[in-house]
Design a protein around this nucleic acid. Structure first.
Length: 107
DNA sequence: GTAATGACCAGGC
DNA sequence: AGCCTGGCCATTA
């Protein structure tokens, strides 16, 4: 008898992560840890990063709305990904200074 | 199979 | 504010 896949496999977790990221409202920001907690796996903050890293360059998922718990971008200052994130956030009204956004924008 | 890696986090200093 | 440490856990080598 084929065991139905348990809901703890990484595919469902990945879907859950993407769903959460997708749910972040425009002009707001969340964190890796918050996403992890939201899907019921508070110790999987690193996994959230793993999922976002695997996204294709042309994705519609708003990965730019995810920063770390300190409100800082995970990318090195000045790197292409950093510039992209900063620009996208500022278009939405979330200023980024020195790689950091105001925590008041965090959901 | 083991070892290293990383878009993390909380706490300590 | 910064830097370090230990813990975390899927992915990758």
């Amino acid at each position: 008898m084929g065991f139905a896949r348990m809901p703890t496999n990484s595919e469902s977790l990945q879907q859950a992560v993407l769903q959460q990221v997708n749910a972040i409202p425009r002009g707001s920001v969340s964190s890796y840890g918050r996403i992890a907690s939201a899907i019921g796996y508070p110790s999987h903050s690193r996994f959230v990063g793993t999922v976002l890293k695997a996204l294709p360059a042309n994705t519609q998922i708003p990965w730019h709305r995810v920063v770390n718990s300190q409100g800082k971008s995970s990318f090195p200052l000045g790197s292409p990904a950093y510039q992209e994130q900063k620009q996208r956030l500022e278009v939405e009204g979330v200023p980024m200074l020195n790689g950091k956004i105001d925590k008041g924008f965090m959901v």
